[in-house]
Design a protein around this nucleic acid. Sequence first.
DNA 1: CATTTTTCCTAGGACCCCTAGGCATTTGCT
DNA 2: AGCAAATGCCTAGGGGTCCTAGGAAAAATG
Lengths: 204, 204
Amino acid sequence: MARAGLTAERVTEAAAELADAVGFENITVSALARSFGVKDASLYSHVRNLQDLRERVALLSAGELADHIAAAVAGRAGKDAMIAFANAYREYALAHPGRYAATQIQLEPAALAALAKKSTAYARNVELTHAMLRAYRLTEPDLTDAGRLLRSAFHGYITLEANGGFSHSRDVQTSWERALDALHLLLEQWPSEPSRHAAEEEGI
Amino acid sequence: MARAGLTAERVTEAAAELADAVGFENITVSALARSFGVKDASLYSHVRNLQDLRERVALLSAGELADHIAAAVAGRAGKDAMIAFANAYREYALAHPGRYAATQIQLEPAALAALAKKSTAYARNVELTHAMLRAYRLTEPDLTDAGRLLRSAFHGYITLEANGGFSHSRDVQTSWERALDALHLLLEQWPSEPSRHAAEEEGI
DNA sequence: CATTTTTCCTAGGACCCCTAGGCATTTGCT
DNA sequence: AGCAAATGCCTAGGGGTCCTAGGAAAAATG
C-alpha cells in the first residue's frame, strides 16, 4: 500500500488546520489520522502523544503570530507601530482561532527548553511588545507593567470577541479602534507613581 | 442500598468543585460519579449530558461571580468602586479557576432563554460594569467602548496570569495595582473623539 | 541485491459518553 | 397502613478516543 508520507511537520500543520476548524480543545488524534487516511496508531511514530501534538501546534502558532506581527510593525514607530501591532495580533487571532488558542497553553518547561534553539517564538512576542513600547519612553518597571496591561487588553478583547462576549449592538470594530486610541493616550501619559490622590482617599 | 441523594444542584456544585481542582475542560461525568460513589449512568437522571452539566456550572459560576462583585462594590463609588470591582473579579477568578473558566463558554441560546427568569447572571455582570462606569460620566457609545476595554483588560490579565503568561520577574500583584491606576486615569480622560493628531498622520 | 531503517498496520486495553431497560426505594393517595 | 406511581440508581452494552506492543511492508542504505 502506498504510504501517506507523514512527518512531524505535516502532522503538526494538519493539526493546526484542524484546530482552526473545530477549536483547539477539540483536536483529536483520530480525526487527524482520518484526514490522512491512516490509522490513528500510525501517528504515534511522529508525535509522542496528544499533549506533544498540542505543544507542537502551540510552538508553530506562536512563531507564525510573531512573524505576522513583526512584518506589520516593521518600519513603523510610535502610535503607528502600536496600532499595527494590535491589528496584526487581532487579525491573526480572528483568522486562526484554533492556532491562537494554542499559543495560550502553558508549555512544559521541557518543551520550552527543547525548542530554545529555535529562537523561542514566545520570547520574541515579549520582545516585540517591549520594542514597540520603547517609543513611549518608558523605563523599567513601567515597561513591564505597561506591556502586561497592553497584552492583557489585546488578549482579553480578542477572546471575549471570539466567544461572543460582546453581545451589545455597538459595532465591535469601532469599539476596538476606540480602545486603541485610548491605550495610546494611556501610554503617552503613563503614571510613573501610584496616584497620590488615591493614596490620600484610601487612608483614614 | 442506600441512595446517594443526588439532585441537579448537588451534581452541579460537585462539578464546580471538580472544575476548580482539575480544570473546567477536564471535568468528566465518570469522575463526578466516582466522587458520589455512584455509577456514571446514574447522573444522567439529573443532567442531560456533559454539555448540559457544563452549562449548569457556567450559570452557577456566573451568578457567584456577580454576587461577589456586587458585594464588593456595594456602597462604593468612583475609583473606589472600580478598584473594588477589579479586585473582586480577580479574586474570584484566581480562587476558582475552573468556575471562572466556565463563565467564559458561550451558552446555547436555549440555555440562556431557559434561565432568563433567574435574572440572568450574565446580564448582571454587564450591568455591574456599566453602573461602575457611570461615575466617570461617560455616555453611550463611550460607555460601551470603555466597558469593553475594561472587561478585556481584567479578563486578559487574569487569564494570562493564571496561565503563566507573565514570566518576567516583576511582581504580578504590583503590576496589577499599577494597571488599575492606569485604567482609572484612562477613564477620567476618556477620549470622546478619535484623536485628531492620529488622523492627520494617517492620511497623506 | 541484502540489510537495515522507517512507515504503517493489526490487535487490544483502558477510559470516557450516553442509551435502554429493570429493580428498588421513596412518595403520595386513599 | 397499604398500594400505586414516580423516582433513583442499577446492569448491560455500543461507540469513540488515547495509547502500547509487536509485526509486515515499503524505502533507504550498503
